[in-house]
Amino acid sequence: MTFAEQLPIVLRSLNTGFLQTLRLFFVTLLGAIPLGLLISLGTMSRLKALKGFLKIVVWIVRGSPLMIQLLIIFYFPGLVWKNNIWGSGESGRFLAASVAFIINYACYFSEIFRGGIQSIPAGQEEAGLVLGMTRTQIFFRVKLLQMVKSVLPPISNEIITLVKDTSLARIIALQEIIWAGQAFMKSSEGISGAIWPLFFTGIYYLAANGILTLLFSRLEKKLSFFRA
């Protein structure tokens, strides 16, 4: 097969893999941002038990490799409980990977959110209280946007890391883009021993992160109408 013949085959396969990468990426974001916010509120709660529990969870999740978490979450139910709760095939692997990524990223996000909330001067809350606002109103109407603004740079860093981290899911054989590219090194669809598809995967990551970087700089501009 000539390169011109191989290219469409490889691109089709990489596209399919990239679609899976993107799905994992978006599902993780959608799950980890709200969960991270809840965890950050929990670690600042007055309930000592909740606070202690969450701090330990965050410490474990941030302190151990995501790859181990993926393996444990995927294999533990089947091997130990003899009950594969994830279901079989690609959809089962995707579900397990999503859960692992959401938990992992929620813990990272929670620490960033906590820093963001705690960096807001106490005077903001006090001003709201004195004006008869409820704590909920103060959180949503006063603090949230200030927090979003201050966490945007560290969060965008994490999100760009997340794009690349999705490739770890191939440890449980999730068919994401690197898995698809690597298949051509062995043999797939009549192509074997080809390393160049792997270089192509790099282009996909670069493009995705380029777009994200642009989005974030836009968002930062949007929030530049005020200064904390």
């Binding site: 903001q124 006090e126 001003a127 209280l129 008869g132 109407r141 200030q146 005020f226």
Partner: peptide, 28 residues
């Protein structure tokens, strides 16, 4: 309800930065 009997002006203003002057006065 009890707090509303009192108003407090702080040394460091504590205005809400993401609201305009008018927005600050309106919000509560």
């Amino acid at each position: 309800r009890k707090r509303l009997h009192f108003g407090l002006v702080f040394q460091s203003f504590n205005l809400f930065p993401q609201y305009t002057a008018l927005g600050n006065v309106i919000l509560a």
